[in-house]
């Protein structure tokens, strides 16, 4: 269970989050929608302490984590996995080493054969077998994104955070990533928070949707409820989703 209580975050004079309060029950998929620059990624990063809120509290399983030091955050981050907006793969390491990176740190008891098997399993999960020896720059952007997902899943997190996982990808890869999020969340029984612009995808796979505008929540609820919303931004998103569906 993740709880946000009156979270505010400012960068200098600019207030990006203006008192955000919401909860995510365990095992649910929450989509956070909004236009660019509304504080979606900032919100996601406050969960794992990559950014500290200016005020307010974040609870994970009833433990307040926004006041923890960098060192105290490690166990919290241990149960979270984050797929960043960019692939964020380590350039100097092979795909195998990138996926194995977190495993070596968190599960040092694994021998080479077990490690290798786990890496292959995770890469197969994102439909990327046989590229273990390549360097990140030798594969496409879409493949890098999927490797990033494999690296995140490898350490078996209980909470998955996706920061615009499909931005910059072609429709086919976007579709496969979206289904992967659903599959992983159901299969691994993780709580997932997905930051996205894609209303269609949110309507398809989210349990709950939250729409942010200028640092405030303007609408939230299950997909069916959100479809009834009269808020102009939600209407814009719904129209966009309808257009996309018609185009298909």
């Amino acid at each position: 269970m993740i709880d946000f209580k009156n979270i505010r975050k400012s960068f200098g004079e600019r207030e990006v989050l203006k008192g955000i309060t919401f909860s995510v029950p365990e095992g649910q998929i929450l989509f956070i929608l909004g236009t660019s620059g509304t504080g979606k990624s900032v919100l996601l990063k406050t969960i794992v302490g990559l950014l500290k809120p200016s005020s307010g509290e974040v609870f994970i399983n009833d433990r307040e984590i926004s006041c923890l030091s960098e060192r105290e955050m490690f166990p919290v981050r241990r149960m979270c996995g984050m797929v960043f907006q960019q692939p964020a793969l380590f350039d100097s390491l092979s795909i195998f080493e990138n996926v194995a990176f977190g495993l070596r740190k968190h599960q040092p008891e694994l021998d080479h054969a077990q490690l290798s098997a786990r890496v292959k399993e995770c890469l197969a999960l994102v439909n990327l077998s046989g590229i273990e020896d390549k360097l990140p720059q030798a594969i496409s952007y879409g493949m890098q994104k999927r490797v990033s997902l494999a690296r995140t899943v490898a350490v078996s997190p209980r909470i998955l955070l996706f920061d615009e996982p499909t931005t910059g990808l072609d429709p086919v890869t976007t579709n496969s990533i979206n289904h992967l999020i659903l599959e992983l969340s159901r299969k691994l029984k993780t709580t997932s928070l997905v930051v996205s612009h894609d209303m269609q995808c949110a309507l398809d796979i989210a349990d709950h949707i939250l729409v942010l505008d200028k640092g405030e929540i303007v609408a939230q609820g299950p997909p069916q409820t959100l479809k009834q919303s009269t808020h102009p931004l939600v209407q814009d998103f719904l129209r966009e989703a309808l257009n996309a569906e018609t185009a298909h």
Binding site: L50, E70, R77, M82, A88, D91, F101, K105
Partner: peptide, 14 residues
């Protein structure tokens, strides 16, 4: 800039 530093922190590496 490419969030590799954040990725390190997420993996529990200082």
């Amino acid at each position: 800039v490419t969030e590799q530093v954040d990725a390190l922190r997420m993996l529990g590496i200082d």
